[in-house]
Design a protein around this nucleic acid. Structure first.
Length: 271
DNA sequence: AAAAGCCCCTGGATGC
DNA sequence: TGCATCCAGGGGCTTT
């Protein structure tokens, strides 16, 4: 479910509410991708200083260390002002003095992991190889182009891989390649500087607008206040196999790349 | 070092 | 209605 815009919208929806709050109790349900990595008691009494985002990870800064939260494929966070009883897929609760932060995740590909610091091995194992933040000023065309230059796999897989640029998931990878007119099977290192420029602009543009629109919902995304997004940025190709391309009327194609579906238009994406 | 596969898990949609 | 099969927006881990 969540790509960068959904994670960022989630962060914005509760960061100000939880900042400065004190952890009162922690409830761990079924184990997620990994165990929490610390005794829940250790978190009690600590302040939540801030909520940051790195790629698709949310970072909750505590007095001592931080929590790394990932939503996986099916995770979502909710923030409750009042008490609420957990449902069958609510696998982590952080009760604070200002409200309850709850992770719901049916598939349990998500994670909540404690790390003693951002430099710790626990944190670096997850964050250490992440690429450029597409919505920050560090996302320069030159750096992006240089990153693509040293990759020999296809551009679609490089976008998904997160080692050159973070936060672009399957939907946005398909959509940005369409907007840039680049075929998804193109070897990344053979992309020209001009094409890299178009792709760079498409990534910034689409992700920025998706955050502004409240996150896309092809299915069921909602932020931590329970408000759903609308997918007002309509997909040009994603999920549209066999339908007419919105630009040229040729049928949208489907292909498999690394066990993921890629949707694209062979007529519009010739670069 | 990088790339390619393999998995983790549940629920919803589709087909018989 | 019931059951089997396929698919899903992610990414760490293991093997090449």
């Amino acid at each position: 479910m969540p790509e960068l815009p959904e994670v960022e919208v989630t962060r914005l929806s509760f960061a100000n509410n939880i900042a400065g709050a004190v952890v009162e109790s922690v409830r761990v349900g079924k184990t997620l991708r990994w165990p929490l990595g610390v005794a829940p008691m250790h978190l009690v009494g600590q302040h939540v200083a801030a909520v940051r985002r790195r790629g698709k990870y949310l970072l909750l800064d505590l007095d001592q260390g931080l929590l790394l939260i990932h939503l996986g494929m099916s995770g979502s966070l909710s923030f409750f002002r009042q008490n609420s009883t957990p449902g069958p897929h609510d696998h982590f609760d952080l009760q604070t003095s200002s409200g309850l932060l709850r992770l719901n995740d049916p598939r349990r590909f998500g994670a909540v992991v404690y790390a003693p610091s951002e430099d710790s091995s626990q944190a670096q194992k997850l964050l250490g190889k992440l690429g450029l933040e597409p919505l920050s000023s560090e996302f320069a065309v030159d750096l992006f182009y240089a990153g693509l230059k040293r990759r020999s796999s296809t551009i679609k897989q490089v976008l998904l891989g997160g080692q050159v640029v973070v936060g672009v998931g399957n939907i946005y990878a398909c959509e940005t390649l369409f907007l840039a007119g680049i075929r998804p099977t193109r070897v990344a290192s053979r992309i020209t500087k001009q094409q890299a420029g178009r792709l760079h602009a498409a990534i910034r543009d689409v992700l920025t607008r998706a955050v502004q629109k409240g996150g896309s919902t092809l299915r069921d995304f909602s932020n931590a206040k329970g408000e759903s997004g609308y997918f007002q940025l309509e997909a040009m190709v994603y999920g549209r196999e066999g339908l007419a391309c919105k630009v040229c009327d040729h049928p949208v194609r489907l292909l498999r790349q690394g066990q993921r579906s890629t949707y694209w238009c062979a007529h519009c994406q010739k670069a």
